Computed example of a mutant assay.
Amino acid sequence: MGSSTPQARRSDTRERIQKTALDLFVSRGYEKTSLREIAEELGVTKAALYYHFKTKEDILSAISEELGRPVDELIAWAKEQPPGLETRRELLIRYSAALKSAIPIYHILQENQATLRDLAVGQTLRERVESIARLMHAGGVPFDTHVRVASALLTVHFGAFTLDEVGGTEEQKRQALLAVALETLDSAGAGAPEGAATEAAQAVSSRKG
C-alpha cells in the first residue's frame, strides 16, 4: 500500500533534476554548470542523470516547457480576445503573474545570450516574448500608443532584472513594476482614447505654425 509506480518515481526524479539544475544555472550560469556538477549536487552518478537527460540543453528545455506553460496558455487566451486597451491591460496583468514562475528561465536566457541564442530553447523563449509583444501591439494602434505599450511591456518583463539590489520581496517588486507599467499604458492624456495624444500634439503643432 502506498508504494509509488515506476513512472511516478521517474517523474519525481526528473523534477528533482530540473529543480537542482535550475538552481545551478541561475547561481553559476548555464555555461559554467556541467552535468557532472548537477549529478554531484543530486548525489547520483552521471550515468543515472544521463538516463533521464542526455544533455544540459535537454534539461533546460524541460524546465522551459514547464515554467513557460502559463505564458503559452496566456498567448492562446490573448489570441481569442478583441484588440483594445482592456485586452492589453488584462494581458499585461496576466503576463506579470505568469512571469512569477517563468522569470528564472528568462534570467538564464538574459545572462547566457551568447550561448543560448542559437539553441532551440533560446529560440522558444524569444518566440514567447515576441508573441506577447505582437499581441500587445495588435489592433492598428497609433504611434504614441505603440510607445506606451512597448514601455509597459519592457517594465514588466525586464524590470525585475534591474531591482536585484533593491529592498523588498519579489512580490512587492512585481506589484510595483506592474503598477508603473499600467500607469504607462494608461498615460498620455490620463486614459484618453487611443491616438488622443498624437492628435493633441498635431493640434499644438498646427497652432504654432
Rank of each mutant, 00 (worst) to 15 (best):
residue 84 G to L: 12
residue 17 I to Y: 00
residue 94 R to Y: 07
residue 185 L to M: 12
residue 137 H to E: 05
residue 181 A to C: 06
residue 158 F to S: 13
residue 132 I to V: 11
residue 186 D to G: 03
residue 23 D to F: 01
residue 19 K to H: 04
residue 132 I to G: 00
residue 207 R to G: 01
residue 134 R to C: 06
residue 5 T to F: 12
residue 6 P to N: 08
residue 5 T to Q: 05
residue 69 R to A: 03
residue 167 G to S: 12
residue 6 P to G: 07
residue 45 T to V: 15
residue 202 Q to L: 15
residue 175 Q to S: 07
residue 126 R to W: 08
residue 30 Y to W: 09
residue 62 A to P: 03
residue 14 R to P: 01
residue 52 H to W: 04
residue 144 D to K: 15
residue 110 Q to T: 06
residue 201 A to N: 10
residue 197 A to M: 13
residue 136 M to L: 14
residue 96 S to D: 02
residue 162 T to W: 04
residue 173 K to A: 06
residue 53 F to Q: 02
residue 1 M to N: 11
residue 102 A to W: 00
residue 23 D to N: 14
residue 135 L to V: 13
residue 172 Q to V: 11
residue 11 S to H: 09
residue 187 S to A: 14
residue 153 L to V: 03
residue 96 S to P: 07
residue 84 G to N: 08
residue 57 E to L: 10
residue 182 L to I: 14
residue 103 I to H: 00
residue 56 K to H: 06
residue 97 A to G: 07
residue 72 D to R: 08
residue 66 E to L: 05
residue 50 Y to D: 01
residue 140 G to H: 13
residue 18 Q to T: 04
residue 56 K to N: 04
residue 1 M to A: 10
residue 95 Y to Q: 05
residue 134 R to A: 11
residue 1 M to Y: 08
residue 34 S to Y: 15
residue 32 K to Q: 04
residue 153 L to H: 01
residue 120 A to Y: 15
residue 32 K to T: 05
residue 80 E to Q: 13
residue 154 L to E: 11
residue 81 Q to T: 11
residue 123 Q to G: 13
residue 164 D to P: 04
residue 128 R to N: 07
residue 88 R to H: 11
residue 101 S to G: 05
residue 188 A to D: 11
residue 39 A to I: 10
residue 205 S to M: 10
